[in-house]
Design a protein around this nucleic acid. Structure first.
Lengths: 172, 172
DNA sequence: ACTAGTGCGTTCTATCAAAGAACTAAAATG
DNA sequence: CATTTTAGTTCTTTGATAGAACGCACTAGT
């Protein structure tokens, strides 16, 4: 009964979760975004088991999110650094942080962000690349993209078959 | 050895993960954002075990992300619907989707988004609420917010910045 | 030289959670 | 009456996790 993998699911969210969907992984990425790079510092800050930390770091390296950078020869020791692919997870981390700030931070945000170019504490606002306006969830309609493999379903199906389809969405 | 909870971690990312950090939970939210609302449809689309699905739905309800809405009396049957708190996870789902599109979708995005007000297929671009400019990871500096309880846990280091910090910062 | 400390993993065991299938249940439908 | 629909529950097997101890290759202190 191994945990089901999302590797073959034709959905970018599932692909993202395949890489950082583990219980600890996103927190490791968070610390890496803060500049943490050493095994022991990850371990001490997170309180994660050493064996699990080792697994997760290797997983991230396999997926090209982090890389090992030697910082001394003898004994061989490495920094764990984010790659460009890993640094790009900043958008995910930021979305999570702001959601947590809004819904689960009764004492106010533990950490805020200063936008250096303008100097203000700021929120990150999702805007449309086409028209530049802020985007709300209800403004967006999902459509099939070039990578779609099952044109029948706009919301991609996860586990294999299950070819049952609801006749004429009796939604509500 | 039960899995360690992030409930008491003073970090909004951890709080978000406490709610949707499980292996399946974010995919359930994704489908709910697409409009799925019935137990069996979640189960069929995701291929998740029924017992795990039941656990996850209850977990989401406990955390105020979803709610049970009766749609028939006898026998009692419920729709599982996102609350406002749940719908607000759209930003997280979108960040994940776009990351997956960029880094793990060799055939192109399986699903794209049309911005209804302007009519274009568009990306969601993170911009600064103060100045309106697009924001890149290196433009942002984390600072302590009003809800901070452990100043030692946030290294004065910049997200995305990769320059090595001398190990003379044993902040723990 | 001897001892302790650092940094990074690995191994081991008890316990817990997941997958998957079978089962229950209450009512509608044929 | 037998099926089907919809939603959950129970059970077993197997895998993952926490936590601690251990190993290893150096370095620093006395």
């Amino acid at each position: 009964m191994q945990r089901t993998s999302f590797r073959d699911v034709n959905c970018s969210i599932a692909q993202c979760l395949e890489v950082v969907g583990d219980w600890w992984t996103m927190l490791i990425v968070r610390d890496a975004l803060f500049g943490v790079s050493r095994f022991d510092e990850f371990q001490a800050r997170l309180g994660i088991s050493r064996n699990v930390l080792n697994q997760r770091l290797n997983h991230l390296i396999e997926h090209g999110v982090m890389e090992r950078v030697p910082y001394q020869e003898r004994p061989p020791r490495y920094d764990y650094r984010l790659t460009a692919k890993g640094r790009d997870l900043w958008t995910v981390a930021t979305a999570m942080r702001q959601w947590g700030d809004r819904w689960a931070a009764p004492g106010g945000p533990p950490v805020e962000a200063v936008h250096r170019p303008c100097g203000h504490r700021a929120e990150i606002v999702p805007t449309c690349s086409a028209c530049g306006e802020p985007v709300a969830p209800q403004d967006v309609e999902p459509v099939l993209g070039p990578g779609a493999t099952d044109p029948g379903l706009v919301p991609p199906r996860v586990s294999g078959d299950a070819s049952r389809r609801r006749p004429a969405a009796p939604d509500r």
